[in-house]
Design a protein around this nucleic acid. Sequence first.
DNA 1: CGGGACTTTGAGGTAGATCAAAAAGTGTGG
DNA 2: CCACACTTTTTGATCTACCTCAAAGTCCCG
Lengths: 244, 244
Amino acid sequence: MPDENTGLALWLDRLTLRSDLNEEERAAVLALPGNLVFVKSNRDFVNLGEHVDRACLIVEGMAGRFGQARSGERQITALHIPGDMADLHSVALPKAATALQSIGECTIYRVAHANIRDLARRHPALAEAFWRDCVVDAAILSEWALVLGRLSADARVAHLLAELSCRFGIGECRDGRAFDWPLTQAQLGDATGLTPVHVNRMLRVLREAGAVDVKPKRVTILDWKRLCTIGQFDPRYLHLEEAG
Amino acid sequence: MPDENTGLALWLDRLTLRSDLNEEERAAVLALPGNLVFVKSNRDFVNLGEHVDRACLIVEGMAGRFGQARSGERQITALHIPGDMADLHSVALPKAATALQSIGECTIYRVAHANIRDLARRHPALAEAFWRDCVVDAAILSEWALVLGRLSADARVAHLLAELSCRFGIGECRDGRAFDWPLTQAQLGDATGLTPVHVNRMLRVLREAGAVDVKPKRVTILDWKRLCTIGQFDPRYLHLEEAG
DNA sequence: CGGGACTTTGAGGTAGATCAAAAAGTGTGG
DNA sequence: CCACACTTTTTGATCTACCTCAAAGTCCCG
């Protein structure tokens, strides 16, 4: 059973990966008040255009950021995993330009903007850490624009799987490793800009190429190098290494 | 002849559009030291992977942020116009994950990260303003991911033209207005994820639909509403209105 | 055991890519 | 001011990756 400490600790790990924080600053993050909310499967918990006053930390499960075309088709512009403050950006810009939806069931921890902003005001190093977190988010988004604009269908799917492998801390010479995967093929299509049918075919291609095996609820990396080659994936943009 | 004051004043306008700043904070921004650099046509002035220590403010002309696929194809992930601090994010994350290239000739004003970071440390309101600026940038990127993932070719081109109209301060019941446009059709293809040939055909379609006329170096809005409809464009994500 | 959501497979259509080349514009040096 | 090279725009013909529509198969949960 997850609790708020798990969530905040995960987020702090994420922050300290890229920013130096002293003991006081770390303690301040871990002391952030909020409430733990369980979100049912595939439910919007932040609506488009809504004026939000709390940010959502993913504690367990996954969530997606969705943009919506006039036609009603949705595009997933970001996927969030445990430890991500999914809409930290809303502290700076409270009007949600994208919706947040759970992917499968998930648990979130809601933290009031006021408290986060207060921390930023009192600790310049935290202000910078929050800023940096948003910038990394934008870097991932920018990479995703490249993927959507330039890569073929098989490469898009491979790229997404490789990115998530890295963010989950798997990958890099870890053939055979597996991780939970709550997305349906239709949702994978919403992320890659493909139809569910074509996603299915691409998954088959990737499986037959011996790169990755995607079953419902579970992804197994078969050949990390091959996956990266097909997906034209280079993890540097994720900024996961402290030594940049 | 542009000078550094023009550039910083434009940027300050951009910042105050979305953040309240007092007299002291405004003065501090306007006093930022740096140097004015003239960049020749289509030259990279920030390279991929480079460790940068200065941020680039666009003073005149345009610049693009480029991602690069393994195959060498480039994707423009953002377009910057005068008044944009194109890589303000580099203050938080100095390793460039994308390149910056002039589009046509442009003039930039380079400001040392140290000076910007110093301002952020001393004025929490400025720290927040810089953060917010990056967040708006990310919101535009997120919209662009939606466009690349979900819209048809004619809509992508229309969307980009509509977005730039708004950012240039044109648009909204201003049929017949025109603005400078340094992008070639090939570059427009790099932004929209299309081939130059197909961009050309889409421009014809938009012209014949009476929406917009794109000539070399110049764009004329023929029918703003129609352009927005074709491009599924809704300017809210740009956060150009103070009242959100 | 039954119903709904998800995955898989098939057949055929289409938006946009690719290849090719002509036409128009732009700048440079004579 | 013209001649030449180069870049950009425009048009045409063909090809293909991905979409659309349709239906069967599988899994999961009550």
